[in-house]
Amino acid sequence: MEKLSWYFVIASILWTVMATVLYLGYALSGLRATRMRTAGMETTTPAVGFMTGPRTAGIGSYATIVGWLAVVTLSFALVFRAIATGHGPFQNMYEFSLAFALGVLVSYMYFERKYHQRVLALIAMPVALVMMLYAWTIPSTIEPLVPALQNNLLLTVHVAVAIVAYGSFAIAFGAALLYLVQPDGGRWGLPKPQVLDEIGYRAVVVGYPFLTLTIILGAVWANTAWGTYWSWDPKETASLVTWLIYGAYLHARVVRGWRGQRAALLLVLGFAAVLFTYFGNLFFGGLHSYSGLT
């Protein structure tokens, strides 16, 4: 099972590389189309809803199919791994990184279905890819669980909820980056700024409750294992910081002056906090010292 899981990881890496290339081709074809449009050629824009962009639909749909294949193979990789270990992907950084990558891939596919903005993949796919490659470089040996981690159900849910949050925040980050790189009014055939602004918001709206739940479940676990629901452990603190930053972002949306640029900057800051939370246990140790890297 462990071996099988590993083959599926390799397959996922290959599919993700391929999807990245296809999405890139798709984006570049769009760039050409935009240039043609500025030169005065006709393009079609739907009357209602978002502009889907005058791109070569063929490459785009292949990219989507390959993206889904990556989701499927990575899901299998995690399922086989879970069968081999007997628990969810929370024992070490290897398992958790794969789960993170799956979170990003699934969130991306979900947002693609909803908003048809394939250009976002240019950020989302590489993020997922980096997580998988990172997993490749670190030890993946299956060790028996130390006593504190023997709380299977709670921890599995805790991690599952966390990766949904992290995946959504990765999408919000992608939207914010694309928002920030283009000048006012949009350029390079990228999605319109207000569409990116909205995707960023939508992604946070999905991620925020899940992050809240992650923190609450973490507190419940800490309370059953150690008798304190909060101990300012670095990982706890980092997740609180992340939560505060996205909280500030949500308020920024309510205050109109904070739309757009500054809101996008908060999203980038928020994702930096996510990565800090995620890799935090490598730097700090603390109670979450399950990284398996020492």
């Binding site: 670095p234 910081v241 505060l244 930053i245 500030a248 308020h251 309510v254 205050v255």
Partner: peptide
Amino acid sequence: SMRVAMVLMIALAVLCVAGSLVLQ
């Protein structure tokens, strides 16, 4: 004021980051 609330949240976030980086 929502702005004040945001500033407070961010200030708290900064202090927490500092606290988690420095030995307590």
